[in-house]
Write a protein that binds this DNA or RNA. Structure first.
Lengths: 148, 148
DNA sequence: TTTAATGTAATTTTATATGTTACATGAAAA
DNA sequence: TTTTCATGTAACATATAAAATTACATTAAA
């Protein structure tokens, strides 16, 4: 089963947007993403609904940030994309009356919940500002290595 | 994205097998699983390799447990099925040279690892014996309710 | 020697995510 | 005001991976 890179994709887009001061088109973002403008619009539509980005139609239009990155956490974005289950493993739900199934699911459920809660706590602790600063550090490092 | 119910499925099969004292055919297991005998054989092949079950061909053949359930943990089974990633979310890996991608992945990676480690610790704590006992408790409860 | 089981490769089907097309809408520029 | 460039979105197509099925070899008991 493939992993879902949507959260990672969105963070990628937002951090790239933070480096520009004029609206960025879906076309440009799709090139950065190596994806498709319509796919980008679909992703961004959710973020717009949550108030993190704005879109502008027509000439000179495109997408821009609507919120200071310091005030957006990974948890915010996670919630904006619909809080998808974080755990890849799931429960059989073939015969809910089956007592074996109930026993197995009961044991797995509490472990899954704990792990999800931990992950969400970490997500609440990380702002997009931090990620952006991390990027800038890497950028400077790369420049210094180039010079040397 | 769908969740992977393989671990749950296998636990289900093993617990059902524990209730029988003669070999169970793939056909029977596939009915319990609402799946297919060949799929069952594929799943069981991994468990046999790990030494948890035995198979017998021909008349009266089928699958049986090779190890005391008290000595098998959820972690053992998880490892036997190839230690698949436990976290549904993944990293973009479109442009590994991209510093934005690196910054994002770095932040996600440590959180994912923490959550995976927690889940695995829980898996080590739970034996199939415990699950089986839980099932028998539920079974007795159901009988008592029926009588009353 | 027939029947019943597993073992496994090859193929088909299905589900889902992703990508694409088409066209409506809106806004700026010519 | 008309053209161009952008988003918005529904409908459709494609790609990919998981699951199921088919086919047939192997093995063992009746």
């Amino acid at each position: 089963m493939k992993t879902d890179t949507r959260l990672s994709d969105i963070l990628h887009i937002l951090l790239h947007m933070a480096e520009r001061d004029s609206p960025v088109t879906s076309e440009t973002l799709s090139q950065i993403m190596r994806s498709n403008p319509v796919v980008v619009r679909r992703i961004m539509a959710g973020l717009r609904k949550a108030g993190y980005v704005r879109s502008k139609k027509g000439h000179g239009g495109g997408w821009s940030l609507a919120t200071d990155l310091a005030h957006i956490t990974l948890a915010d974005i996670y919630i904006a994309i619909g809080s998808p289950s974080l755990i890849k493993l799931g429960f059989r739900n073939v015969a809910p009356g089956c007592l074996v199934e109930q026993a197995v699911n009961g044991a797995l459920e509490s472990s899954f919940r704990e792990a999800e809660a931990l992950l969400l706590r970490r997500f609440h602790e990380i702002t997009l500002k931090q990620l952006s600063e991390d990027f800038h550090l890497r950028f400077e490092d790369a420049r210094n290595i180039e010079k040397a």
